[in-house]
Write a protein that binds this DNA or RNA. Sequence first.
DNA 1: TGTCAACAGGATTTCGATATTGCATCACCA
DNA 2: TGGTGATGCAATATCGAAATCCTGTTGACA
Lengths: 250, 250
Amino acid sequence: MATAAPTRTEQVYARMRADILAGHWTPGAKLPFAELVARYGGSTSVIREGLTRLVEQGLVQAEPQHGFRVMPLSISDLVDLTTARCELEGLVLRLSIEAGDLEWESAIVAAQHTLERTPMTARAGEAQDGRVDDDPGALSDEWRAAHARFHNALIAGCPNVRLRTMAASLRDAAELYRSWSGPLGHGQHRDIPAEHEAIAEAALSRDAHRAVAELTRHLRRTADLLMGLETSGAGSNGADAREPAATRED
Amino acid sequence: MATAAPTRTEQVYARMRADILAGHWTPGAKLPFAELVARYGGSTSVIREGLTRLVEQGLVQAEPQHGFRVMPLSISDLVDLTTARCELEGLVLRLSIEAGDLEWESAIVAAQHTLERTPMTARAGEAQDGRVDDDPGALSDEWRAAHARFHNALIAGCPNVRLRTMAASLRDAAELYRSWSGPLGHGQHRDIPAEHEAIAEAALSRDAHRAVAELTRHLRRTADLLMGLETSGAGSNGADAREPAATRED
DNA sequence: TGTCAACAGGATTTCGATATTGCATCACCA
DNA sequence: TGGTGATGCAATATCGAAATCCTGTTGACA
């Protein structure tokens, strides 16, 4: 599965990244070298390089003489993140719709089909080997992967690599929040598949304005829900809420 | 001068970054460990960590088993970069104008005053110690610093840390292009100070729409000029132009 | 003469140990 | 008894060498 990357650093980095995004390390928790070396193999140099990359991506925090810790979550950051995503992902989606070709369309159709038929919640007690087991009702890894692929397919048509990369990076940051909140759709009279279909349909109709509006609503709803339930379970100093969570602007 | 950063990695990283942005290494050129160790001190680990951070920022390119090289320049990337900057920096400026306080205003006034009175071109023959000397007519380090501070002051009012960081990162990437083109304003019947003043004036008048329009025009003019002159001097495989430079969209 | 394989040189990647730093505990003194 | 300073411990930051990989060259063979 990880044959393409020849260097050990790359492999370790990829695994650490996946684990963090999957929620195997609690936000704000320390990442001690000893444990990382034991878990991922490689020497401190390799671990350190991986951590450094994650720091630069905003997924990990570095404290100069105290080591590294998973980026802590906060309400105010989630507000910022959501605003940034709405603006940036909206822009990228618009460019994508303008430039997307047939292949792009087909990929969206396929990704939506897959997502639609992938169950959101996993069977409990299927934790891999990580530190934190998934509570019942948590999003399944398969669904999250399909979800990411769907959103990636939407913006894949945008020819501007820089904008696309930045949008993807923001989505990763949001993934961290998604991992550390209670189950999302939970009854809350919300039809997530319908939201996805609305976005896809508008995009395929080349109706950029409507597609962006649907996407923005989708993102904001998710964020609002996350904020409502924001009480990250395990961690010691997991979440520090600085602001009273007011959706500003737009 | 570098007393605040306790770790050696931080110092080396900062110096490498500054040197790259200042144009002391030609785009596309290899960055051999031996030379880096000799120039910046520290062992390979330290150098490597710094390079890794720069890779994640898009300033350096990593080829898994072949080392690192300065990110190559290309017309198509400059087009993407400019679009991204116009959109993102425009957005951030708007938010900044909406939220900026008196302190923000004052900082802009001060930064513009400084910029206005800093000569753009340096005296020739003042190369520090680096590899590539500045040709006569190149932008002075002082002006470039003042210029960066001015643009930073404009967007400093934006409370959204993520958006602000991303905008700053894009400006750094643009700085690389600025370093590797002929002198900018060169007669070209262009009044750069006036452009800056127009942006500042509109921002201080809280006229977001006009400010963004002025900023966008400023950025596009610079990019167009860079593309017209795009023939990076020294480097071996410096610039690879993939597309015929067509400004699209908007 | 052209092609392929083995070899040598140089560069990067990885390792394990050492040096350094920060923190907590404890003794000592006012 | 409260506060201050020294000491030991744990963890990170840094180092320099060994291992690994790529590249260009030489030589043999068809």
